[in-house]
């Protein structure tokens, strides 16, 4: 047993140095948020600021308009995540049904579009959303963000659902559960790891999104998100690096919270489910 414990702890000898190196640039970014521009750009490499200042955070708060944009960003990101989860999980479930006519074509099309760049102009999307009358709100932006992001989640859900043992579903059906019920009560709860992953990735994507929230709020700048606000630090030739670093630190916090929260979905395998 001792040998086993030793063998297990040996891994830390590998992981700790790896993580220290890994996180160094990130820590540097955090420390830059407390430095003066002079120290960040031409000072040494020290991680500890000589003369720590909170001025960057004050500037970040006003320049990136955190106070007005945070609520928009939360709304937008949650809308995107909910849209993607619902649409992708239903589609993935349907596509995992055996023998569904037309499935091959659809899956082939999905995969093929992964590789063909989605147009280099936003104009078709813009026309569509405008035509739906959603051109100046976050819902239009959320649709435009969620739409192209669907392919991978659909494939992930499909892969996951088709890997679930058939016995499970049949048992549910024996109990008299219909299609909808089986999906909602049996299958979806099992798919937590995939849901967690999809939610996390799309949350990050939406949280940092820049182009779509910009284009779909042109007439209504009060609806913009932080991803757009961050560009307040870039002038034409110069950049307010310490302000940007501070803003980056603030805006990373919600993502870390979401990460820690969703991380639980990665620890529960489907073991228990199979037994019951």
């Amino acid at each position: 047993m001792n040998r086993l414990a030793f063998r297990r702890n040996v891994w830390h000898l590998l992981l700790i140095p790896l993580c220290l190196v890994w996180i160094y640039p990130f820590v540097w970014m955090v420390s830059a948020a407390f430095k003066t521009p002079r120290e960040m750009l031409i000072g040494g490499l020290s991680l500890l600021p000589d003369d720590a200042t909170l001025e960057n955070f004050r500037r970040a708060w006003t320049t990136a308009k955190f106070s007005t944009y945070t609520a928009n960003t939360i709304t937008y990101s949650i809308a995107v995540v909910v849209l993607v989860l619902l649409v992708a999980s239903t589609a993935g479930y349907a596509l995992a049904r055996p023998g569904l006519p037309g499935k091959k074509v659809l899956v082939g099309l999905l995969i093929a579009t992964m590789f063909i760049p989605h147009g280099y102009t936003i104009i078709p999307t813009f026309l569509l959303v405008n035509g739906l009358g959603l051109g100046n709100g976050l819902l239009g932006a959320a649709l435009a963000q969620a739409g192209p992001a669907l392919v991978v989640p659909v494939l992930l859900f499909m892969g996951f659902f088709s890997g679930i043992p058939k016995e499970l579903e049949e048992a549910a059906r024996m109990d008299g559960a219909g299609y909808l019920r089986t999906y909602w009560k049996v299958m979806l709860p099992l798919a937590k790891p995939v849901m967690g992953t999809v939610a996390l990735m799309n949350f990050i994507g939406a949280w940092n999104a820049f182009f779509i929230p910009l284009v779909f709020t042109l007439g209504n700048p009060d609806l913009r998100t932080l991803g757009v606000g961050m560009y307040g630090f870039y002038g034409q030739d110069t950049t307010d690096w310490t302000g940007l670093a501070a803003a980056a630190c603030i805006s990373v916090i919600p993502i870390v919270v979401v990460f820690l929260f969703l991380q639980r979905t990665f620890v529960e395998g489907i073991a228990g489910a199979v037994k019951s």
Binding site: A71, N72, I74, T75, L138, L139, A142, N220, L223
Partner: peptide, 16 residues
């Protein structure tokens, strides 16, 4: 969270 966000941002989703 949804409720708070929506309350804060008004009817931002549909826009006006």
């Amino acid at each position: 969270t949804c409720a708070v966000a929506l309350a804060l941002s008004g009817c931002n989703l549909v826009g006006g």
